[in-house]
């Protein structure tokens, strides 16, 4: 391969925007759950379990975790892009991070709908 610098991959905006939007989604969910925790002191297990009984709450929680994984994907990828110079190694680590985050997402869904 030639050693010339090539730019213009045309996807930086999408990831940057995704990171911003997912941050807002996570902040809203965190505020809501913090509000629940503050209004249920001392917290009983029954309350905590009741919170996750409705389907919409499980869906919102899943959305929160998906936002977290997308946010983490952009962040981890940024770190790899900064510090891992060999292209093949970087690609391998990108794939590893993607697979791990995809596994976490499936695991999260499994936990949320398993009780």
């Amino acid at each position: 391969m030639v050693k010339r610098a090539a730019g213009g991959a045309h996807y930086g905006l999408r990831d940057w925007l995704m990171q911003r939007v997912s941050a807002v989604a996570m902040a809203l969910f965190t505020l809501a759950v913090t509000g629940f925790l503050l209004s249920h002191r001392p917290l009983r297990f029954a309350d905590w379990q009741a919170l996750f009984q409705p389907h919409w709450m499980r869906l919102l929680t899943l959305l929160f975790f998906l936002s977290l994984y997308l946010h983490a994907w952009v962040g981890v990828r940024d770190i790899l892009m900064d510090y891992i110079k060999p292209t093949l190694l970087r690609l391998g680590l990108h794939v590893a991070a993607m697979l791990a985050l995809a596994a976490y997402a499936i695991w999260t869904a499994q936990i949320l709908w398993s009780f």
Partner: peptide
């Protein structure tokens, strides 16, 4: 803008 829309050229700025 086309030339800057790139994960390295612009979006390395945090």
């Amino acid at each position: 803008l086309d030339h800057l829309e790139d994960p390295y050229r612009l979006f390395r700025c945090h």
